[in-house]
Design a protein around this nucleic acid. Structure first.
Length: 192
DNA sequence: CGGTTTTGACCTGCGC
DNA sequence: GCGCAGGTCAAAACCG
């Protein structure tokens, strides 16, 4: 679906006011300075991307007023210690679906890009797509393909500017991007 | 052939 | 309580 997947061409602007670093969020590939360096090829004066972080319940970051609706970053997700991979327990034909309110750290940012899925170094598998009310474009749902990584992300495009992509990450990677193919769990994924 | 995407159905939370 | 909207599942289709 990502059509001609060549050199990722996107521009990012981030507002950092977060208790956690990108690194701690499970994105070691992009530390702050690296994230910032992504700005370099773009025009820094142009507010192309805003990043927002959520601290479990509270949204701590800065984000454009309409960039990411509150339900994306503001709502919290009930965890309930489902520590067994994606679908926790198929109580009834595996229909424990649509469990919201997981307490995962999440952050979202807005990016101007031609491609929906930014190359963040991780492998993602699409598991759903949904047409959302306020947007002309469908929202896509991705999960990290790593064995024990429950990180999810949502990707949607702004209805006004179809080049603007809103990406919402949810959860923390317990592996490094390079470790993606190598399924070895080296840190206990201890959080929350 | 195995992994990924698509897509419709289903489930849950929330507002009215 | 009901309806709507969002989020997830899973089977089928697709692709390398």
């Amino acid at each position: 679906m990502e059509g001609g997947r060549g050199v990722p061409n996107y521009e990012i602007q981030i507002s950092f006011s977060t208790p956690q670093t990108i690194h701690e969020m499970g994105f070691p590939q992009y530390e702050e300075n690296q994230m910032m360096s992504l700005l370099a090829p773009a025009q820094p004066s142009q507010p192309l991307t805003t990043m927002a972080f959520t601290d479990h319940n509270n949204q701590v970051g800065t984000l454009e007023p309409k960039a990411v609706e509150d339900q994306n970053c503001g709502s919290n997700i009930n965890d309930g210690n489902n520590n067994s991979w994606w679908r926790s327990s198929g109580s009834e034909k595996g229909k424990v679906k649509a469990r919201r309110k997981l307490r995962e750290p999440r952050f979202c940012f807005q990016t101007r890009s031609d491609v929906d899925v930014l190359d963040d170094g991780y492998k993602w598998r699409k598991y759903g797509q949904k047409v959302v009310k306020n947007s002309l474009h469908p929202r896509s749902y991705y999960r990290c393909t790593h064995s024990n990584c429950r990180v999810k992300k949502r990707v949607e495009r702004l209805s006004e500017d179809c080049r603007m992509v809103i990406t919402t990450y949810e959860g923390r990677h317990n592996h490094s991007p390079s470790d993606d193919s190598n399924s070895s769990e080296h840190e206990g994924f201890t959080s929350f």
